Amino acid sequence: MEILASRVLFRPADYRRSVEFYRDEVGLAIAREYGAGTVFYAGQSLIELAGHGAPTEGTPPFPGALWLQVRDVYATQTELEGRGVPIAREARQEPWGLHELHVTDPDGVTLIFVQIPEMHPLRRDTRND
């Protein structure tokens, strides 16, 4: 099997509210609008909000979290606060070395904004360590 592309697909409870959140509050650029949905750029991935269908009743729309790498998580927090986005958990360095900031979308999906420090193993070749 060959995977040609991938994206995360959400079926939000309130499509318009979710589009406003990702476009206006988080500030993601639109990759494509197709009448029944909107696709956003998210680094090397895409986030699609479907305006058709419905979320499954009684279950969370997405059981995990979105991991979004940024250059400066503290500047990202300031930018989001300036747009009025509530911060679920302020930016801080985690015991595993990453700097993380948590925000929750209108359907309860956690967005984890991550800054990877220069010397973290994710940013260097550890094959010879």
Rank of each mutant, 00 (worst) to 15 (best):
L4D: 10
A5L: 12
A5V: 03
S6Q: 09
R7A: 15
V8M: 10
L9C: 09
F10R: 04
F10N: 03
F10G: 01
V19Y: 00
E20W: 11
E20S: 15
E20V: 15
F21E: 00
F21C: 05
F21K: 00
Y22E: 03
D24C: 08
E25H: 14
G27T: 00
G27W: 00
A29T: 09
A31D: 07
R32C: 10
Y34W: 13
A36M: 08
V39Y: 07
A42R: 06
G43K: 10
L46S: 08
L46V: 03
L46W: 03
L46I: 04
L49Q: 02
H52I: 12
G53P: 06
A54G: 06
P55H: 08
T56M: 12
T56I: 11
G58K: 02
T59W: 07
P60V: 14
P60W: 01
F62Q: 03
F62M: 04
P63S: 10
G64C: 06
A65G: 06
W67I: 13
L68Y: 12
Q69I: 13
V70F: 09
V73R: 05
Y74G: 09
E81I: 13
R83P: 06
G84E: 02
V85R: 08
V85T: 15
Q93N: 12
P95T: 06
G97H: 10
L98W: 06
L98M: 15
L98T: 09
L98H: 03
E100A: 09
L101T: 02
L101F: 01
D105S: 04
Q115W: 09
Q115M: 12
P117H: 03
P117C: 04
L122D: 14
R123T: 08
R123I: 04
R123S: 15
D125W: 11
D125T: 07
